[in-house]
Design a protein around this nucleic acid. Structure first.
Lengths: 351, 351
DNA sequence: CTGTTAGCGCCTTCAA
DNA sequence: TTGAAGGCGCTAACAG
């Protein structure tokens, strides 16, 4: 692998000159530039970023940690972050935490050793040790949280507006005529999930309903577990809900399995809506009503903010919180034909 | 960010000693080790991989380029590759090529500059300039192709056994009683796709059928395009196929839309099977019969092979080709109830 | 067993 | 406009 020295040699100039044409830091004569360019091509020279980073102590690299990039929501976020990073000349290293606080710690440590200049993170579901993140910030590494926002850590963050999103979904179900709506959530140790429950409650209250805590079903993020939970609840002798609202994709998958196993038809027997596109929602039968998060944008915005911090453009002392609105895709699973088959779209709450 | 020097200072030893305890290269006294360890923790020291890489000219980093990690198949591959890499103490940088040969070239160049020690790549769909890959190899960077294997480039590769997989899928449809089976493919500029067509033909031939070229529908990898193509074909006045076999996920999504729009029911009006899990296949109605690729394993094996090359364990001069078998998940979309409702499972071809 | 030191490849003053 | 040289943090001889 040729070095700058070899290039200089072939071009018949000094290394300093080669460096100058590469970085474009100094104006050189046309002749020199072409001569050097020719040598570079001839040798198929690729500047050594490792050496450059060591010298400048700038790696132009960002890291992003997500629980599991196999969940379709995250690759979109990563793509957004990648696009924004690249636009600023940065690379992005994406790693998975497997929703495991210990692994997350290791990954964080590795990223630090790799000297990434900033980190984007959707924290693992367990109770995140506050130190893990604030230590980074103290060490001068910029951090922006996305999607999953940790409690009580003062840090910039970008996520969907959980409350609004859940409220919108729930309100839609209410507008469609459903009255006894259960919410199937992920672990309530996650702030998002709590906020979503909050939005759900708000919508109920706005409709003059008092929530029933028995209708808050806390699952985790494994579809099988959620399925089991829902099956149990649906079998219980207490009055069955007339609609299910799921606060995330994996949970929804589980819930759908439970409905299928219970032989319940949507929307006739039970209404259904969920956070997150199930990748191919529109081809489900019936198509599933979905609260869609702007995943790509979340990644984009988060990376932008991170870059602003790194480049010193953002000086705000207090953490910045960005909440992007979700959108509602109304499809067949929440059309309550029997009860009210004229309602369509995002109807207003009755009275 | 503290350096090894600072650690040495705090611990009251020389930098060499600190380096030794970190790398574990030399046996040191217990006392020293604990003293240094304490200093490391106190300073929250993280070894600078950049400097280490420069010194050792080993980055312990691999790169992987996929067309689009938003396609659910690829994150699984990446996860597999990540797991294998990590097991050998390597990191993995994943980037997207957007199926664009130019972008792919840029990414490759960046990865080179970052001095990754090896590259895993699923080549972009366009005609891949042979040079792009062979140049890397010439430069001493190990390369293993996965999933998408380029033509006429001598390089190690890992992918599903396309012929076997397509043959299995097609044979299953034949076994279910379908006779006029169309195959909806991605761009035939991709070797995989051609091999899949090959497997399809083989299965037809084995059943004593002569393929009809009008039933080979070449789409690209955008669902909308595939949908349009299928709609056109289904509307054409030539005799309609009684089953569709899709050779990849995005194409299948498009085909399913076309079927829905045409009001065709599976499996009654038309049989259906496809490569690749549509993420939530089992919840489609009807559930879709699928040829499942061992994506995680492909990533794993490919990374393993790459590492073996890097570590000089694999000396084979000729490229190694690994083809992993696919498995068939028979579900409702290919059960031809009307024609033959006793067939179930992967039935033998009727003589 | 522990300390000293020479670079790895590059960028960036500073001088010519 | 061009060249010379120091040093980023670390590892691996080698010396003590």
């Amino acid at each position: 692998m040729p070095s700058i020295k070899k290039v200089a040699e072939v071009a018949g100039v000094s290394v300093g000159t080669v460096s100058h044409v590469i970085t474009g830091s100094v104006r050189l004569s046309e002749t020199l530039r072409t001569k050097v360019g020719a040598a570079i091509r001839e040798l198929n020279y690729h500047p050594n970023h490792v050496a450059r980073s060591l010298k400048t102590s700038k790696t132009r690299t960002l890291g992003i940690i997500v629980p599991d990039m196999t969940i379709s929501f995250y690759p979109q976020i990563i793509r957004g972050a990648e696009a924004a990073s690249r636009q600023h000349g940065y690379s992005l290293i994406a790693v998975n935490s497997d929703d495991d606080v210990e692994l997350q710690k290791e990954r964080l440590s590795l990223l630090r050793s790799q000297r990434v200049e900033g980190i984007l993170i959707a924290v693992a579901a367990g109770p995140t040790p506050l130190g893990q993140i604030s230590r980074l910030i103290d060490a001068g590494i910029a951090v922006v949280c996305l999607d999953r926002i940790p409690d009580r850590v003062p840090v910039d963050s970008v996520s969907v507006d959980d409350v609004q999103a859940a409220e919108m979904g729930t309100a839609h179900l209410l507008g469609a005529g459903y009255r006894r709506i259960a919410i199937v959530t992920g672990p309530l140790s996650l702030k998002n999930e709590r906020r979503r429950v909050c939005g759900y409650r708000k919508a109920l209250a706005a409709a003059g309903l008092t929530g029933d805590d028995e209708l808050i079903w806390e699952a985790d993020l494994r579809p099988e577990r959620a399925a089991a939970l829902c099956r149990d609840h649906l079998r219980a002798n207490s009055r069955r809900p007339d609609a299910l609202f799921c606060s995330n994709g994996p949970t929804a998958l589980g819930a759908l399995r439970a409905l299928r196993d219970a032989g319940l038809q949507m929307p006739a027997d039970i209404g259904f809506a969920t956070f997150d596109e199930l990748t191919v929602d529109e081809l489900f039968s019936p198509a599933i009503t979905t609260v869609v998060q702007p995943a790509y944008d979340i990644g984009c915005r988060a990376a932008d903010m991170l870059l602003r911090r790194i480049e010193g453009l953002e000086k705000s002392e207090t953490p910045i919180t960005v909440r992007l609105p979700a959108t509602l895709k109304i499809r067949e699973s929440s059309r309550s034909f029997e009860k009210n088959d004229t309602i369509s779209g995002f109807a207003m709450l009755p009275k």
